[in-house]
Design a protein around this nucleic acid. Structure first.
Lengths: 189, 189
DNA sequence: ATATTGTGAGTGAATATTCACAATATTATT
DNA sequence: AATAATATTGTGAATATTCACTCACAATAT
């Protein structure tokens, strides 16, 4: 049981948003699932969109903190990238709903506002490491290495979808190991 | 102007689905945009979901045919991969709405039914080429090379999103060239 | 004594789908 | 060719349901 009603609302909403979709989830069903009244949701959140945005910020922040924490004890860019890739996989399995919600919300402008793009996001953890690896001559990257974030994040994200939908028959750990090696091949050339 | 009303409905729906989202697009607005009546949409499609599925099949088929066509005249797996990567970029720019719709629909179970996953899809074009490249010893891939499709498709997809949202400051053609080279580094080791 | 949190019926607007009907195109019959 | 018969395509008002959000009020905490 959640500590507060507000927390219960956030948890129920995340669950329903992921399982049924954001639009198909009604305020009424969130209230019911959280054991509270509809009006109380509006006590805590300005609107349904505000609720959806708050949940996204929570999930993205949690994800970013997990990545930052994982990479902290190491300063070798190559090892850091390996850790990051493995951490994304881990996070997607351990926090399945949170990860799914990030994927879903990513395609919705009402949720990902311009203001939100200026806040610290998961991808920023990568940029720093790639930059430093490039300067040390470990990674062979374009002048502006941000695009390499797209490469790695895209690879991992799609691989997770392939695992979830059982499009690949490879065992999960095998996929992770191979994806780590492939991403390093890509960066090191 | 569309050749038939049915075609006009399909075109208008695609346009609105991409710009406003599928749920936020009403049957009424589709009818209005297509210059027809609401009831006529139900003459041609069982439901709004059926319409959304039909559009997805059209877009995915067009995408797959474009990839197949592009790769036909070449039999060198390495060059074929380069062609495929470039063709995805080209397609995403030339058929912006169709490509966006494929991305959006991909996260919706009501649209991507299990039955649909058994039909020929864009990714299948890759599988064949990767398999053949692996057998010829050009690509160093896992026993089951399907996962490499996830890698390439994910890389390209995310790169396109980075270009669209102007997250990278690299010029478009530079991104394409670098992504081609990165994907070949990844496959060839 | 006041601020915060919780309640749920009520409101107005919007929605997908249906249906009885009309127009038009296609085919069959003189 | 002309007409009749039928099938297809098009119409938009009506229906019943659902939705996000408000508000006057109640409970609880500070």
């Amino acid at each position: 049981m959640a500590a507060t009603k507000k927390q219960a609302i956030l948890e129920t909403a995340l669950e329903l948003f992921v399982s049924d979709g954001i639009d198909a989830t009604s305020i009424r069903s969130i209230a019911e699932g959280a054991g509270t009244a509809e009006g109380n949701i509006y006590r805590h959140f300005k609107s349904k969109n505000d609720l959806a945005r708050t949940i996204f910020l929570n999930c993205a922040t949690q994800f970013r903190n997990t990545l930052k924490e994982a990479v902290k004890k190491n300063s070798n860019p190559e090892q850091q990238i390996e850790i990051l890739v493995r951490t994304i996989f881990d996070f997607s399995f351990e926090y399945e709903k949170e990860f799914s919600y990030i994927l879903i919300a990513n395609h919705r402008e009402e949720i990902i506002t311009n203001e939100m793009l200026s806040k610290p996001l998961p991808k920023d953890v990568f940029v720093e490491i790639l930059q430093s690896g490039k300067e040390k001559g470990i990674f062979k990257l374009p002048h502006e290495p941000t695009i390499a974030v797209a490469w790695i994040v895209g690879m991992v994200q799609r691989s997770i979808i392939f695992i979830r939908r059982q499009i690949t028959s490879l065992e999960r750990n095998k996929v992770i190991d191979e994806t780590v090696r492939a991403s390093l091949r890509m960066l090191k050339g």
